[in-house]
């Protein structure tokens, strides 16, 4: 699992590349939280275009970051969601708290 970051103003874009399961979740949490802090992030955008696999551990990771970000008045968005992963987001009700946009242009426009 590889994370790529791009910071723009107060927004942090995180590209997830690979497979997100329980095995990698803990390290990703730590790395993400450090980067969120370092870049003084208000809004967080997950780009999932290259996410090959995700189970409910991923829901936990996104919900955890949502809790922290929303406490500070920020928003969390996800973009480029692969169809097979969309199913688990819908099922978990994640879209009630996290915004979904088709691409980065739209996400940056709306946040």
């Amino acid at each position: 699992m590889l994370l790529n970051y791009q910071a723009m103003d107060n927004k942090l874009i995180v590209k997830l590349d690979g497979e997100l399961d329980h095995h990698v979740a803990e390290n990703i949490r730590i790395e993400l939280d450090e980067m969120i802090e370092k870049k003084r992030t208000k809004h967080l955008i997950f780009d999932l275009a290259n996410l090959q696999f995700m189970d409910s551990s991923g829901i936990g990771v996104i919900m955890g970051r949502y809790k922290n970000i929303s406490k500070m008045g920020g928003k969390v968005a996800i973009i480029e969601v692969p169809e097979k992963i969309d199913k688990i987001f819908t099922l978990s009700g994640l879209y009630r708290i996290v915004e979904k946009y088709p691409n980065i242009t739209e996400a940056l426009d709306r946040l």
């Binding site: 936990g60 099922l91 978990s92």
Partner: peptide
Amino acid sequence: PLFTSKPELERSGMGFTVMET
């Protein structure tokens, strides 16, 4: 759904719901 005995691990509690669905 959403029940987890380990919230401190940021488990979503969705495991069985995913399996069922």
